[in-house]
């Protein structure tokens, strides 16, 4: 094992134990690791944002735009790139947020991104999430009609429609939940509870996976590295 790897394992183990010390109680080691985590994450994001976002999307188009004005660069580089200066300028308005006096400048790029996102969402969400999900709910009945579905398939299709309709009724607050609506919404709650229960079961799997990996690191990599000490 190379020294640099050895040091890396020991630092990682120290930080892992710092965080696990929280299980006993809150303490300075935990707070140190927690804040270091925030700092490192921001440092990483800044680097990646610059190299993988800012340079290819903003700096390179900016350079392309101003290149024709640069001394020594032939003018045939073209003027069409100037168009790109508009979104770059609007993007720069985000930094108005640094000073309370100019925070309002953020509204311009935000409005564009929000409007653009909203305009993109309407047709796509409608098709992918509403039409397709409705199709998925109704389609099995075509198979029932064609006689290609088993008895379990038929029961499953009916259960699905009941579940979807009742869940939607539970979320429908424009009518008072009384009488049949109340009963149907209660069925909806039952489906939701099963859904949330299954999410709990799966969440445990996810969190335990992280723990297993960390314990695996501590036992196999860190304790395993003790041999290199002697």
């Amino acid at each position: 094992m190379e020294l640099i790897d050895f040091i890396g394992i020991w630092i990682a183990a120290f930080l892992t134990l710092c965080i696990y010390s929280f299980l006993y109680r809150d303490n300075p080691f935990y707070r140190f690791a927690e804040h270091l985590f925030v700092g490192m994450s921001v440092g990483y994001t800044i680097t990646i944002s610059i190299y993988q976002g800012f340079i290819p999307f903003a700096w390179e188009p900016f350079w392309e735009a101003i290149k024709p004005f640069w001394p020594g660069v032939p003018r045939e580089a073209g003027w069409s790139g100037l168009w790109k200066l508009i979104p770059i300028g609007i993007g720069l308005l985000f930094f108005g947020g640094v000073s309370p006096r100019y925070t309002w400048l953020i509204r311009y790029p935000s409005a564009i991104l929000i409007g653009l996102g909203a305009g993109l969402a309407i047709p796509n969400v409608l098709r992918a999430d509403i039409f397709e999900q409705t199709r998925g709910t109704v389609e099995p009945f075509a198979s029932i009609n064609a006689g290609t579905l088993s008895i379990w398939g038929i029961l499953g299709a009916i259960l699905m429609v009941v579940g979807v309709v009742c869940t939607l009724i539970y979320f429908y607050f424009s009518v008072e939940h009384r009488g049949p609506v109340n009963w149907l919404s209660k069925v909806g709650i039952a489906f939701l509870m099963i859904g949330f229960g299954s999410a709990f079961g799966n969440t445990v799997m996810g969190r335990v996976a992280l723990l297993i990996q960390r314990v695996d690191f501590l036992i196999n990599d860190w304790i395993g590295s003790f041999g290199a000490l002697f």
Binding site: I46, S49, G53, I90, F94, P109
Partner: peptide, 18 residues
């Protein structure tokens, strides 16, 4: 394209806020 050009500014601004 405009949105893509603006996106990194938002990301960097987010980190500045922190």
């Amino acid at each position: 394209n405009w949105a893509l050009i603006m996106a990194p500014f938002a990301l960097i601004f987010g980190t500045i806020t922190l």
